[in-house]
Structure formats: structure tokens, C-alpha cells
Design a protein around this nucleic acid. Structure first.
Length: 593
RNA sequence: GGACCGGUAGCUCAGUUGGAUAGAGCAUCAGCCUUCUAAGCUGAGGGUCAUUGGUUCGAAUCCAAUCCGGUUCACCA
């Protein structure tokens, strides 16, 4: 039980004893005391004044003296300022917390609660390599999954590959026409980049053909339709759906190249999935549900045979769920997939990590599932994140300003290596150790930079700032961990030693313990909000406090043996919590750097 | 035009869900390595929390209106 909830329940009991009035947890607030006042935690009295018909001063003092008398192990003193009852938590209580948890590496993680959450993230298109936007998606999805695991859920990480459709056919057509049989193997290229180049090539050729047609007197709109290369792509899509063997073979071949490339990138960034779904399998799934929906009169058919749902009563529009030719649209597949996931996992919650440009889509999806009476509808949650922009504005494929995932990762690792060499602290590392360290620092910086921002806000990715290793960065947190480990390498805490509980805590020692104690609550909040930035911000704050502590106070040369053991335990617990928290963000922490 | 999201220091972001004098980092300036890692620490300057009104003991936070920016409202995915 956290300190805050302890104080809460004790206050409730006290008020019942003193005033015979039963309050709930939400009837008053417990805050951390502002640094300019004396105390650790503060009971805000305002909301209690009216029901108890007391003045702030009287209530504060009555409650304060009752609490300190009844719970001397918890509270050492109090003061009342205006409507605030500031409580000093006794040092022995804090030292007890430290003693209880400094050795645990599962501190803050909850017991399994038997509930299952499906987290879908990444959802790549198999026609081009991953870019910065995908990285935000992957980092978020992976981290949220880990946070939910830590909070006690069974988590299934899933990925849906958008592996079919006109965009895939475009790269296929371009490859057939212009590659002359070249392969990733023959060119030494990474498969996803290789295929992506042909997607780009398609665009260029298409544009050329349009211009030619226009020059020959065709209107622009007509030219866009009539360009031979576009017709070829459309024909290929028809052939694909008809299952034409050579088209299917080509499709499989090119997709396998892309998957090869994706695997490499996923491995580098540490993304993993428990279950892969493929749009080429799922795109027909929703049709059965469309039939059912028609019978239940959730959907209706228009004269041209297309099927719609009327959401005007819910404040939205009419939305098509099946084309007039009977083929599935995007939302149809998603209805099918939602049901398939539910049947496979009987989830309590199904999270979709998808950009906020699809907010409307997921609102519709949930409404439709609800109207169809699917048990999955309640648990659908769209973890909507904002776009990643560059200082110059949105990334645009046409203007070539898209930041490629592999490129940025390479760059981060390169700069990490340069900086590490400059500092020259790890000259005794082997080549493998160095490579691992560069990866840890480079990739950590990237993940931290992206995850530190609240997911729902759009963010600006400044390449120069992202490779800064000072201040509010992963390196700072990693460095703090390495620093703690350096001390612990010199001397480990003596587990047999029994700390004196009456030891007076210095301000920074206490601050550290208070922060460490909050870690389980931080995980809880992050899980509740599906928000890794809560964890990342916490790790930074912890590292900052630790750095101040280590700079100002000696550990190994502490004034007394008791102080030394206390500080060693502080180092141990801080290192544990930093490592644990950063792990939840997918960021490793080195022993030395 | 309808719906949704956002606007906090020069820049990038926090702000414990309504609490005390709004915080960090970067950048700028001034100090600190003979010491367990200086990728660090200490300090200074920097704010009309977009604007206006409302709700109440109390508002960056809740409500309304306005301004600015974004997304979306496809038989694309």
C-alpha cells in the first residue's frame, strides 16, 4: 500500500472517530507538500470544512494532533497553514520502506490479475520501409504492453500487416517493368528499402506518363485515369484478387523481401509480436458480420447494392461498410478482426495503437461493434497518438523529407559512438561491449526523446536535439544508473547490517526515498492512462535527484557506518528502479558508460 | 460548414485530474573536477498559462464564447 493511500485511510478513520462522519477516498486530497513548506505530505482541508462545520485552523490542529498521537510510527509532526495540514512522515517509516524494497527487482510490479489485454501496434504497409512515424507507434505500443504486464495483465502483442491493395501492386508493377530481375540479394540492399524504391519509381513514372498525356491534349483528370502504368497496377490488383498464380508468386516474393527488412529493423529496436495478422487473410472476415448486420437491421442496403450504417443518431454520418460490388472496405476488415481477436483471446481490453488521423474511424468501429452486439465492443480502446513533425513541418513523401527509421537509428548510434570515444571512459571495453554500449546509448536516446512526450500530443522531432546527450535525455538517466553501479562495484550493501531506524535523513536522502516509494503508483498511472511518458518523466526526475545526492554526499566515505549502509541501499534501490522503469520504456541501461 | 484534438519561458516539453509563490531541459550568463563516473552539480535571468467572461473559499486545470494551428467528415487504407 502506498504512503498516500495509507494517509488517506488513516485520515478517514480519524475523521470518523473525531467527528462521527464517514468520508470517502475522493472527498479530500492528499498532495506532496510544496518544498517551501515544512512537511512531506499535505491533507487539503477545504473540502472537509463544510460537512464538518469546522474552521481550517481547528480542524487542522485537531486532525494533526490526533494523527501524530495515534500513528506515531507514521507521523512525526505536523503544522497547519491556512487550509493545509502538512504532515511530517517519520524517518523510521522511510527507512523501513528502503529496507523492505531495496533488494527487489520486481518492486512496483503487480501480481497477475487474470485479465487479458490485446495490444495491436506497428501495422506497417509492405510497400515501403518504416519511418519516424512508425517508430513512435512501435515505441509506444511496445512500452504500453510492457507497462500493462507490469500492472498485472496478460498481454498479447499483435501486428496487422497491410500487405495487399493498390499500393502494393504499384511497387510490384514497377519492379516488373524496371528491375530487370534485380533482387535485394543481387543489389545488397535491405529488402524493405529495395521494394520501397520501386514504389517511389512507380510514382515518378506515373507522373511522367500523365504529363505526356496532357501534352497530347488530354485533361489532367483523364490522364490520371488513363496512364498505362496506373492501369497496369489496377489490373494487377484484379488479378491478385482472382488469385492469378504468377501475380500471387510475385506478391509473395516481394512481400518476403519486405518482411526480411522489417525483421531486421524490429530486432534492432526491440519490437516483438505474439501474433501476426495479415490483411490478405482478414479482408474477407467482416463480410459474414455484414450479412448478420443486415438481418439485425443494423445496416441497410442502398439501391446500388452498397451496404451502409446510419450513425447520424450518434452525431456522426452514414458510413459505408461494403461496396456495391460486394467487396470489403477498410472498416469491414476491422470489424472482422475485432471479432477474431475476441474469439482467440477473450480479451478484457483491445488496444489499437494508431495515429490520431484515424480517431473518426475508431469511433465508428466501436459504434458498429456495439450495434452488432459484439462482446468485444466495450473493450475497444484507440490509443491515439499525434503526428511526428520536423522543425520544418510535416514529413512529406513527395518532398523527400520523410525521416527513414533505419537512417535515424544509424545516425543516433554513430553519434553515440563518437561522443563515447571523445569522453574516453571505456577504453578497456571489447569490440562487442562497445557495440552494445553504442546501441544502448543511441537507441535509448531515440526512444526516450519520442516517449517523453504525451502520446496524444503531436510532437516535433528535432534531429539536433534528439542526439543531445545532456539534460532531459536517456543518456542522463543511463549515466545516473552507471554512476550508482560504479559505487556498488566498490562496495555492495551489507544485507546483514541492520539499519538504525532513528537515523536522521538528510533532505536529499529523504527526497530519494519518497520518489522511490512512488514508483508503483507511477506504473499504475502509466497503465491507467496508457502513457509511457509518465514512466519516462519519472525516471528522469529520479535520476536528477540521485545525481544531486551523489554529488553532494559521499557514499563510501560517509560519516558513519550506518550512513554508509543507508546510502548503499539507496544506490541499490535507485539503480534497480531506474533499470526497471527504463525497461518499461524499452530502454536498456549500461553498467558503465 | 459539422465533429474531434491542441495553444504553458526564445525553443522542446512537464504540471500528481480544482489547491499554497506555474516547473524541467535546451539556449544565455556566473561558479564547481587531486574526491564513489563532470554524459554531472550549484546559482541567475527568462511567464498576461491564446483572449474574454463564468462557476467557488481557490482555475493553467471545469463551463461558454472568440482567435490561432492541426486532424477528419472517400465505394483510400
Amino acid at each position: 500500500m502506498s504512503v498516500t493511500s495509507k494517509i488517506q485511510s488513516v485520515v478517514i478513520i480519524a475523521l470518523e472517530q473525531l467527528y462521527n462522519h464517514r468520508f470517502g477516498v475522493k472527498d479530500f486530497q492528499i498532495n506532496q507538500t510544496k518544498p517551501e513548506f515544512e512537511g512531506d505530505y499535505t491533507v487539503v482541508l477545504f473540502s472537509l470544512l463544510k460537512p464538518l462545520r469546522q474552521s481550517p485552523d481547528v480542524l487542522g490542529n485537531t486532525l494533526g494532533s490526533y494523527l501524530t498521537k495515534q500513528y506515531p510510527a507514521l507521523f512525526s509532526s505536523y503544522n497547519v497553514i491556512k487550509g493545509f495540514l502538512n504532515l511530517d512522515i517519520s524517518g523510521s517509516f522511510w527507512i523501513g520502506i528502503l529496507n523492505d524494497h531495496y533488494q527487489e527487482n520486481t518492486f512496483g510490479k503487480k501480481e497477475n490479475n487474470g485479465k487479458t489485454i490485446v495490444v495491436e501496434y506497428s501495422s506497417p504497409n509492405t510497400n515501403k520501409p518504416l519511418h519516424l512515424g512508425h517508430l513512435r507507434n512501435n515505441f509506444l505500443g511496445w512500452s504500453v504492453a510492457e507497462i500493462l504486464k507490469a500492472e498485472g495483465y496478460n498481454v498479447v502483442k499483435t501486428c496487422i500487416a497491410n500487405d495487399r491493395g493498390i499500393h502494393i501492386c504499384k511497387s510490384m508493377v514497377a519492379w516488373e517493368k524496371y528491375a530487370g530481375g534485380a533482387t535485394p540479394g543481387s543489389t545488397g540492399m535491405k529488402g524493405d528499402h529495395f521494394v520501397g524504391d520501386y514504389y517511389v519509381r512507380f510514382g515518378a513514372e506515373y507522373k511522367k506518363e500523365i504529363q505526356e498525356l496532357i501534352d497530347n491534349g488530354m485533361s489532367e483528370a483523364e490522364a490520371e485515369k488513363e496512364a498505362p502504368i496506373m492501369k497496369a497496377a489496377q489490373q494487377m490488383l484484379v488479378d491478385w484478387e482472382a488469385g492469378k498464380p504468377e501475380v500471387i508468386a510475385l506478391w509473395k516474393k516481394m512481400n518476403s523481401w519486405v518482411y526480411g527488412g522489417f525483421d531486421t529493423t524490429y530486432k534492432r529496436i526491440g519490437s516483438d509480436f505474439d501474433k501476426m495478422y495479415y490483411e490478405s487473410d482478414t479482408y474477407l472476415l467482416g463480410k459474414k458480420l455484414v450479412e448478420e448486420g443486415l438481418k439485425k437491421e443494423v445496416f441497410f442496403k442502398k439501391a446500388d447494392n452498397s451496404v451502409w450504417v446510419d450513425l447520424t443518431a450518434d452525431g456522426l454520418d452514414e458510413k459505408i461498410v461494403q461496396r456495391k460490388d460486394g467487396t470489403a472496405v477498410y472498416i469491414t476488415q476491422d470489424i472482422g478482426l475485432a471479432v477474431e481477436k475476441y474469439e482467440a483471446y477473450h480479451y478484457d481490453q483491445s488496444i489499437y495503437v494508431v495515429g490520431d488521423e484515424q480517431n473518426y474511424h475508431f469511433k465508428v468501429l466501436q459504434l458498429i461493434c456495439n450495434k452488432l452486439g459484439l462482446p468485444s465492443s466495450e473493450g475497444i480502446y484507440h490509443l491515439s497518438y499525434g503526428m511526428v513533425e520536423l522543425p520544418s513541418g510535416r514529413m512529406k513523401t513527395r518532398e523527400g523529407t520523410v525521416v527513414d527509421a533505419d537512417d535515424i537509428i544509424d545516425e543516433m548510434i554513430k553519434v553515440a559512438a563518437q561522443k563515447t570515444e571523445e569522453l574516453g571512459k571505456v577504453k578497456d571495453f571489447t569490440a562487442e561491449e562497445l557495440e552494445k554500449l553504442y546501441n544502448t546509448i543511441g537507441l535509448g536516446a531515440l526512444k526516450f526523446f519520442i516517449l517523453r512526450v504525451d502520446p496524444k500530443k503531436r510532437m516535433i522531432f528535432n534531429p539536433e536535439e534528439s542526439i543531445d546527450f545532456h539534460g532531459f535525455t536517456a543518456s542522463f538517466v543511463q549515466f545516473s544508473h552507471a554512476r550508482a553501479k560504479a559505487i556498488l562495484r566498490n562496495e555492495a550493501p551489507n544485507h546483514q547490517y541492520s539499519l538504525q531506524l532513528n537515523e536522521t535523513l538528510l533532505a536529499l536522502e529523504k527526497e530519494l526515498i519518497i520518489l522511490l516509494e512512488k514508483y508503483p503508483a507511477v506504473i499504475h498511472q502509466a497503465a491507467q492512462e496508457h502513457n509511457p511518458s509518465v514512466i519516462v518523466n519519472y525516471c528522469y526526475e529520479l535520476a536528477k535527484t540521485f545525481n544531486s545526492f551523489v554529488t553532494e554526499h559521499r557514499v563510501l566515505k560517509a560519516e558513519t557506518e550506518n550512513k554508509k549502509q543507508l546510502r548503499l541501499r539507496l544506490c541499490r534501490m535507485t539503480a534497480n528502479v531506474i533499470a526497471s522503469g527504463m525497461q518499461l520504456a524499452g530502454i536498456e541501461v549500461p553498467e558503465r558508460m
